[in-house]
Design a protein around this nucleic acid. Sequence first.
DNA 1: CTCCAATATTTAGTATGCTAAATATAATTG
DNA 2: CAATTATATTTAGCATACTAAATATTGGAG
Lengths: 169, 169
Amino acid sequence: MTNKLDDVFVHPGHLIRRAHQIHMSLFEDEFAVYDISPVQYVILRTVEALDEVDLSTAAGIAAVDKPSCTRFVSRLVERGLVSMSSDKADQRRKLLRLTSKGRNLLPALNACSDNLEERMMERLSPDRRRRLIDLLVEFASLNNDLSRAPHKTPPAVRQNTHALDDVQG
Amino acid sequence: MTNKLDDVFVHPGHLIRRAHQIHMSLFEDEFAVYDISPVQYVILRTVEALDEVDLSTAAGIAAVDKPSCTRFVSRLVERGLVSMSSDKADQRRKLLRLTSKGRNLLPALNACSDNLEERMMERLSPDRRRRLIDLLVEFASLNNDLSRAPHKTPPAVRQNTHALDDVQG
DNA sequence: CTCCAATATTTAGTATGCTAAATATAATTG
DNA sequence: CAATTATATTTAGCATACTAAATATTGGAG
């Protein structure tokens, strides 16, 4: 009951391409109201987490090439979600920060992100969801160096989740 | 030891995007000599499998939108790998066939595809490779309808693998 | 201080992957 | 058979994701 195309259909590359199409479609649908793209969202979250970042570092964390990062950031700046200013100590570097508008928007975007994850995974059993995430984490991590825009761990991501003196907000 | 970005980094959408980058990079590298893109390869294999297909059907099998399929096919026709002719019974339909040049190229491309799969999976244990493929097959299959260019099973894919009266060519 | 190399960003250019609209042909309805 | 509707393909246009080259600034070597 196999056919001549089966080896194509079960090729990891082909499957990842199809998974990517599904993700893009659901993402666009879920974030449509806010007109935010996947990479824009990662950049916003990166800027939020680091409080202040230069473009190259943000690109590395978000795993995008720098020219694309520049364009996405420009759009975010146009929309008033991010501010960009030259580093006084080094005029080449452009430092990014969230504006209050950007900061206020994030909770809604995080809700979209949660909905998106739910919609992406709802047709898999809980056990399989976990397995798929685990395997994708391993795949992306083990092969990170093979990507054209590899993820780069920031020099020091603030460990806000267990901030010692941050008892209540 | 977690940080504020962990929920982004383990989001299935983000992971699939990174997996896609890795695939694209390796594919381009592996097929560089032949200058063939992932979708071009699937289209070539589709035309080979069906012997003769119209553009829309090919697009559905390859899981690409029709305008993109048109463009990819045009390129394949320019390069003399595929022939395109109007269906005499319905002048709207364009029928695709492999040229002998295209047919002769396929074994080399299939070797690239095998190498690509090996390179994509070599850093995972055999057990995890299987699991990942299984889960991606399930994911793509269960969510196929959510894609903007869903896969469509062809009306009748020739079952050449057990051709009854096709003993030798 | 000047020239040269290195770094950060931006610009230009290309291919992909989609939507929406235009075109061409076929099928249907009255 | 004329008019309408439906189907197949193509064109136009837009956002993404890269590479390579251009620009601006900094940091050193002599």
